[in-house]
Design a protein around this nucleic acid. Sequence first.
DNA 1: CGGGGGGTTGATAATGCTCAATATCGGTGG
DNA 2: CCACCGATATTGAGCATTATCAACCCCCCG
Lengths: 249, 249
Amino acid sequence: MDSAIALSLSTHCPQCALKNRCLPQHLDATALLRFDAIVQRSRPLRQGAHCFNAGDPFRSIYVVRQGAIKTYSMTEEGEEQVTGFYLAGDCFGFDGIHIQRHTNSAKALERSHLCEIPFEQLEQLCSAIPHLQHYAFQLASHQIVLEQKRMQLMGKRAADARVAYLLLDYIQRATHGNPQGEILLPMSRYDIANYLGLSVETVSRILSRLLAQGIIDLQGRRVKLLSLAGLRAQAHMDTAAPVRLLFPG
Amino acid sequence: MDSAIALSLSTHCPQCALKNRCLPQHLDATALLRFDAIVQRSRPLRQGAHCFNAGDPFRSIYVVRQGAIKTYSMTEEGEEQVTGFYLAGDCFGFDGIHIQRHTNSAKALERSHLCEIPFEQLEQLCSAIPHLQHYAFQLASHQIVLEQKRMQLMGKRAADARVAYLLLDYIQRATHGNPQGEILLPMSRYDIANYLGLSVETVSRILSRLLAQGIIDLQGRRVKLLSLAGLRAQAHMDTAAPVRLLFPG
DNA sequence: CGGGGGGTTGATAATGCTCAATATCGGTGG
DNA sequence: CCACCGATATTGAGCATTATCAACCCCCCG
């Protein structure tokens, strides 16, 4: 399975299985080659290794070719705050553009292959290829939209909805909308809790409840979705903001 | 005061008092003129008027010349979620680039003057002026960083710290780091609560407490900072989430 | 003068946190 | 191979922060 995926992950963009996920659709062959030429593919990051650390000078943005990355920042008190989980095809590192310095750290949750895209060269290419420039803006915009969605989650949803939403989102991303088989969560309960603004215990309890309700199958980090509808219901369910009937007059 | 500011807000970039806040520093005169040529300055938005609505096709990003804008999105259940408050010099609308359609609505909290920057033309200009392209990426990146900061706030901070942080941030932005005088909050308590993921009552109570503690002076939406140190202490204080480092693995 | 939106305050309840105990798992060394 | 250890995960009990409900005030505006 993993090897099958790996086989189609060529080291060059034109053959890469993910090119439709991390590159604009209608890029002509020449442009694709020029883009491919600036991409750097270093050897894989081992589990726990850092791609970059908060404070590092910003040089590149990154795309996950295989594996899973978590990004996190530190509050002034030195507590970690997980800012995102990135899977194959996902792009991260945009936080660094602003002050030319990363504000997050990025760490491999499992052995991961990345494509590094030096930003200065990308900018040059963007000037020459309007299509690519537009796509780069779209990627940054996507990051913004994702973060706003997450604010909705943290601001308005009860704990169970948050956990359900994360599971739903993760399973869909990891299986490309084919949420049947068993998947392995690469992140710890601590990471999940931190990401959702909850305590580990709460996350654990909610997962146990989802298991008891027959919505998921679960052992450790292995999850299997049993009831998509059930999980969806939990994700939307909002005990924190009850449905309030209003009188028509 | 307001009139004094207004006087220096020319309708054209080269003379605008805010040009150092919304444009890159080292833009040569020609580039500045070319940029100025694409900016549209329509008549002011009256209080409560919308700049755009969620779902509208994306055409432009906007800069606040004067006034205050709030952006908000809707959850699937139809609840509002405030995503940001924007003051003079601030730029908003980046959420729309991703799918060519706004995901937020933007509404004037008070009578506001905006500069509209048609995005297609901006992109063309960016291709020709590398400096401007870089700056546009920086702006988008800044938005990302701001939202990540807010996640820290919602994920890790207790209610009082959130309110204190908002006040601190708002006062500093509204006074340009001269946090002495009295300022007028343009947003309702509901907006503040919604933005921070709290209930109105909680926000009100915490403001009252800050007043009782002599940290701020407060009547309605009029606020005056009395103790910067005190407010800072409240903003950092973190009763809700104990210091707990995530595991190194 | 009445109505409504916005704001404050109080009482009560509950969601989710803290503390604490226990279970599981993976690796490591005897 | 087994014992042991640290890291991770689950579960229980009690409590605190914060939401909810309710009452009230204030001010603006028609």
